[in-house]
Design a protein around this nucleic acid. Structure first.
Lengths: 217, 217
DNA sequence: GCCGAACCGTAACGTACGGTACGCCGTCGA
DNA sequence: TCGACGGCGTACCGTACGTTACGGTTCGGC
């Protein structure tokens, strides 16, 4: 299956020089999309193609390493679970929503997702799995403990954390990601992201909040 | 902007033979993804490459024509707005949700969206715009009258139909499309789709239903 | 029956790019 | 001092594929 992939810490033994090269590749990926060439990467990184092939094997290897390198850069900030009241729960949810919207609307995320989607057609490599694992599934892993804590504290009601998470995900992302991937000019200002985060959180609490108790999954 | 593109009836003057060719290209696109070659299309369609170039100009033209051809095939079934009660409104919403999930989980939709996403990087053509226009925006055009009717009939409460639609969209699609595009094996059975449609509709009514009156956009 | 147009099949061309080989240079340990 | 080595720059090879060209075939109109 797809969920049991290397999820944590794949920044395995990369020299500074190699990181620089991957950063260059990443920048090039954002600028030019998937049609970046090995020659262009070598030129941008001021290294030789032979070095690229020695380090990363082939083009797919370079792409995979680049995606993993970017993934390794987004470190997880652990959520503090100490004093949990409804306000702090809502604040946490809003924070997650706003973070997620910021991520998926970033140039880097768009470029990486586009490349991964393109490669998912001919399943040679598992770029899609890597992106998914470090994106949507990483988000679920971070958010679920918060949901569980909210449930234990009596603020949330749900039977399945996965279903609750996916609802939250849908309320937050809506059509944003697919529109951006398809090239729609959808500029999300910080204010708009903040507003959407608040709205999504309120809607989620309306659906899964324990107070009114209106509906489970 | 992206929304003001050719939205209706672009099945402009296509001979039966040309439609057959485009069908072949479409099948090939589903099977092989974006790396389909002109030679492969010509062989599959039993036509010559020269004919392909005469008819469609170049490779991008063929791709665009293929996407438009598929788009022209999904005809809109108008919604009957006659006897509108809450049950029929819910049934309509469930129908939309189930249809949409069926579409985005189909092989054809996945293949087309992948190609369009891949081409959105280097904005030479507007495949992304076409897909978006005949997908997400067409859905909005069809659903909004239903929402407005539900509002006028007193069953729904919202100030902005677009926002309400996007919430419904998010509740229905959630993470399904991005996971499928990224290659996740997410098999949606008819039963699962039906269940999701019911859940999404219930959640949407819980958020925007007029009875309980708990929250607007 | 004859002409031209449309089209099929295929061969050929040009190019872009992945991948490889080689010469040269700076660094470093002996 | 010197050889080895890691890495840069570049030239080169092979191939895949978009695009074009050409000979042969069918078919509608006169």
């Amino acid at each position: 299956m797809l969920h049991a992939v290397t999820d944590i810490d794949t920044s395995e033994a990369l020299t500074e020089r190699q990181k620089d090269v991957l950063d260059a590749a990443l920048r090039l990926l954002v600028e030019e999309g998937d049609q970046l060439t090995m020659t262009a990467v070598a030129r941008r990184a001021s290294c030789s193609k032979e070095t690229l092939y020695k380090w990363f094997g082939d083009r797919d290897g370079l792409l995979t390493a680049t995606v993993q390198w970017q993934a390794s850069k987004v470190r997880v900030v652990p959520v503090d679970r100490k004093g949990l009241d409804l306000a702090s729960l809502a604040a946490s949810l809003e924070r997650f929503a706003s973070d997620w919207l910021t991520v998926i609307s970033s140039d880097t995320s768009i470029a990486l997702n586009r490349v991964a989607v393109g490669h998912a057609s001919s399943g040679k490599d598992d770029l899609g799995a890597i992106v998914l694992e470090n994106g949507r599934f990483a988000l679920a892993r971070r958010l679920k403990p918060v949901l569980e804590a909210g449930k234990e504290a009596g603020f949330l009601e749900f039977s399945d954390a996965e279903t609750a998470f996916r609802t939250f995900f849908g309320l937050v992302a809506r059509d944003v990601q697919i529109r951006l991937l398809l090239g729609d000019r959808l500029e999300l200002t910080d204010a708009a992201i903040g507003g959407d985060a608040v709205r999504a959180t309120q809607q989620f609490l309306a659906l899964y909040g324990a107070k009114t108790g209106q509906q489970g999954p």
